[in-house]
Simulated assay, not measured.
Amino acid sequence: MTKINMKKGDAPVSLTKTPGLTARMTWSSHTDYDLYAIVLRTNGDVEYVATFEARGVPARLSTADGAVKHLGDVGRGAHGTAEEVIEITLNDSIRAVVPVAYSAQSNGAGSFYRYRVTLEIDNGPAGEKVAISAENANNDDRVYSCVPGMIENTRDAVVIHALEQYSRRGSENRPTMKHGRGGLLRKGPETIEVVMDAGPRNRYK
C-alpha cells in the first residue's frame, strides 16, 4: 500500500485508474458530522449524493446511474473515530467528484480543525491511498462546510487535488461545481472550479 499525505498547495497526485474508488471522511466521534458528494458531469450537470435534503434537492444515496453511492449516516459515537464512506465507480460521464464534510447547526459547537476531519481516497486493488486533513482550518465553530479535495476523472488516470476550501462563516449553502475553458476565444486547458456557498441551502438537521 502506497499512502500519500497531501496538504493545500501541493501539486495534484495521479492514481492508477481502477474499477472502483472509495472516498472516506473521518472525524472525532464526539460530534456528528455528515459526508456528501458533489458529482460534476461532462455535460456540466451537477448531482448531489447525500443522506439529507437541501432546498429543492431530495436526499439521494446514489446518483441516477448508481456510479456514486453513499454507504449511510453513522451518527454520533461515544468515543474514537467516526467515518462515512462514498463508493465511486467512474464512467465517461463523470468529470469530477468532490466529497464534502458538513457540520449542521444542530451539532452544536465544534470545528473541522478541532475534530480532525480527514479525507482518504483509496483506489483499492492498485494499493494507492491519498489523505488530506483539515490542518489549515481554524477553530471557528460557525464554519459548516469543508471541501478537503477533489477527485478528477481523466482519460488515463484519477487525479487528486488538495483544495481545503471552507464555507463563509454561518453559511448553510452547499458548494457547487462548474467547468469551462479559459484563454482567448475559450481555447486552452479545461478548468474545474469548486464554488463555495453557491449551491442549495441545506435543510436544518
Rank of each mutant, 00 (worst) to 15 (best):
R186E: 12
T191E: 06
M150Y: 02
R169A: 07
E190H: 12
H179D: 06
S167L: 05
Y166A: 13
H179F: 14
G188E: 02
P200T: 01
N136Y: 03
N136C: 01
N202D: 07
L184G: 09
M150A: 14
D140A: 06
A198E: 09
R169M: 08
A137Y: 05
P175T: 00
V159F: 11
N202P: 11
N173T: 13
V158P: 03
E135G: 15
A137P: 08
R181F: 15
K187D: 14
S145L: 07
N136H: 01
P175Q: 09
H179V: 08
G188N: 11
I151S: 11
V195I: 09
E152K: 14
Y144L: 10
A157C: 05
R174I: 03
A198R: 02
V143F: 07
M177L: 02
V158A: 12
V195E: 03
T176N: 04
R201N: 14
N139D: 15
G183F: 05
N138M: 11
T176E: 03
Y144M: 03
M196S: 09
V143R: 06
V194H: 04
G199L: 00
E190N: 13
V147T: 11
P175G: 09
A134G: 06
P148S: 15
P200V: 01
V195P: 00
N136M: 05
D156E: 15
I151C: 14
N139M: 09
G180F: 10
A134V: 00
R181I: 07
N202T: 04
P189Y: 03
E193Q: 06
G149S: 01
D197V: 13
N139S: 14
H179L: 12
I151R: 02
S167M: 07
G199S: 05
A198Y: 00
S167W: 01
K178I: 02
A198M: 06
G188Y: 04
P175F: 12
I192T: 09
G183L: 06
V143D: 03
E135A: 06
N153D: 14
R155E: 09
L163G: 10
D141N: 05
R174G: 02
G183H: 06
E135Q: 01
P189T: 05
A157G: 12
H179K: 12
V158K: 13
D141S: 09
L163E: 08
L163F: 07
G188R: 04
K187A: 10
I151P: 01
R174V: 00
P148N: 04
S145Y: 07
R186C: 08
R203G: 11
E193S: 09
